[in-house]
Write a protein that binds this DNA or RNA. Structure first.
Lengths: 342, 342
DNA sequence: CTGTTAGCGCATTCAC
DNA sequence: GTGAATGCGCTAACAG
């Protein structure tokens, strides 16, 4: 249509130079006219190139949050199976900064074409990103983002709103007169647990706007189950008017199981994430509601945005994608299983 | 690898016959061995064939439910833009059986390769499906399914559970002592409004299990706004202890607007679907919660399943897809906008 | 029954 | 600065 050959059009499409102004203009006019949109799949086979994606996130335990993200990543590479993608997972222990450093140190050795980062430690991540920026390797953040970096996309949740909504829900689910507790996890060291911090802020904010409810705050530990059980039981002994508990991380099942084991009932629990333990508890009624943040979709879209970037060399207009907050009760749980995976 | 040419492999893949048992076995062994999975996109370009998809649903008014479904359909044909798909919309008035018959009658004239059906009238739809079955034209149901038909897939919601959940939510959102009303829409004629019927059953069921709440039931009309306003106001005058209203269709905004206009407040409303009017009301606080059923995803997946069927000639294992029920408040609303579309 | 050939949209290489 | 030729995974038509 523009009176030039396919070769020239291709040079223009990919900014490979060696094109006269005249040709460029003619072709660009036609491209616009016909609304040309290149085909990512045929493009990929024609390129006959393998892409190396390095994924560095906290360890995925079976049935937990990061496994769902990995599932989403897996589904994406299936959906785009015509694009040859090699994934290398570099997982670290989110409670151990040395493990994170070790993982990050091997990122570059893997010659990534792109990197998916699930960040926990701020400084280390910033350093990694600086390296990636220097080598012009694109990266995306998943679950949370880190300041002072230049990702091509981030997939996060508005944790503040999660916390606020948690407050609103738990307030509506217990009798007006009862007290409400917020349980957080004891954190060790300096890791970036900004997710819970933000949730906590939002939670507090809700009850600041809606006073006349007494809020009790408590921490429990992930490390010592026996110790933990004692602490939790003591808490409820001392705070017998508490009828609602918001566990502002994904460990609601721990509290639920302690209460069940000790025959304490009549307490409404709300927590986060469709982990297999939480699913079990929501089924048996010991957890009443879960807030979820589409981990599968995060993983899926992370890969999708990378593929589009690698093939089209173009950033999306929108860099920051904030995931929906799904509210899940016993009743609507079954229908999230299939669609969790996009 | 099997010592035969591409042509033979292709004949085997598509069951086109003229293949010796020996070749078939050899090839099938290799296919299994390498985990062969055909590429739907290159397959499509090679076929250089246009597919005609006829979509027959109730009229899509701007900002309402069926428009969201159409958006999902649109996104799917974008995502699969390498497969040439021609969509023809045959919309009918869901309150007019003649209009539906007229639409259905033109389905076959359009020579569809596949049909997407949003059904309202049972008998008419069954007849249409019989015709399609006879001509071996595949079809999928969207929003609701009809008995005695053979769709290759259906995308629906568990309306009974929606109703049950509506009861549970509204109960928790109003003071224990207050009465609760359920509003439905007056239906004319014999059309299939099984969606609201099922929702109503679920709603009633919840309060049967959880007694000590008085439930008032009321109908309002879509046809006469002034009349309607009178009826609604009268209802609240006569039932002054009602503090919670469940509108078990997508018209919660109508009740919300009437209450606002007449300065009645302190009433919690819950309704269905992210229509633009409901979005407005949830933003200004006059509707407190909405239950939604992923209409975009329904549309998207309807097209996707058709494409896979047309290209692979294989039914999916799972025919009936039940969508998640999303619970939306003012706070988590903003993050559903982007992801409504898959 | 089978292999060869041509061509889909796309990208690269290599002469000119 | 440009076009022709080649090849990617895939399918269909055709010749044997």
């Amino acid at each position: 249509m523009a009176g030039v050959s396919a070769g020239t059009v291709d040079r223009i499409l990919h900014n490979r130079g060696n094109v006269s102004e005249a040709s460029r203009e003619a072709v660009e006019r036609v491209l616009k006219e016909v609304g040309y949109k290149s085909n990512i799949h045929t493009s990929a086979i024609s390129l006959r190139r393998e892409y190396n994606i390095v994924i560095t996130t906290p360890m995925a335990s079976p049935g937990e949050y990061w496994e769902s993200i990995q599932n989403g990543i897996g589904h994406a590479i299936q959906e785009y199976s015509d694009i040859s993608i090699i994934c290398r997972y570099l997982n670290y222990n989110q409670f151990d900064i040395y493990s994170c450093r070790a993982a990050y140190n091997t990122v570059m050795e893997n010659n990534p074409d792109a990197v998916i980062i699930g960040a926990t430690f701020i400084t280390e991540t910033q350093e990694l990103c600086r390296e990636l920026d220097n080598s012009r390797i694109p990266y995306v953040f998943i679950d949370s983002s880190i300041e002072g970096t230049n990702p091509i996309a981030t997939f996060t949740t508005d944790q503040y709103t999660c916390g606020y909504l948690t407050g609103k829900l738990i307030r509506s689910m217990v009798p007006d007169s009862s007290e409400i507790a917020m349980f957080g996890v004891k954190r060790i060291g300096n890791q970036h647990s900004s997710n819970s911090t933000e949730r906590r802020k939002g939670f507090i904010k809700y009850f600041a706007e809606t006073p006349q409810t007494t809020i009790k705050e408590a921490l429990f530990s992930m490390l010592n189950p026996e110790e933990n059980e004692k602490t939790v039981l003591e808490f409820f002994r001392e705070n017998s008017r508490v009828r609602g508990v918001a566990v502002i991380n994904s460990r609601g099942n721990i509290i639920a199981d302690i209460l069940k084991k000790n025959g304490i009932d009549g307490i409404t629990i709300i927590s986060f994430d469709l982990t297999s333990n939480n699913i079990r508890c929501i089924r048996d009624g010991s957890i009443s509601a879960l807030l979820c943040q589409r981990p599968e979709l995060q993983g899926f879209n992370a890969v999708k945005s990378i593929i589009h970037y690698l093939l089209y060399k173009k950033k999306e207009e929108q860099v920051h994608h904030i995931m929906p907050i799904d509210i899940i009760f016993k009743e609507n749980l079954p229908y999230y299983r299939e669609f969790m995976e996009v």
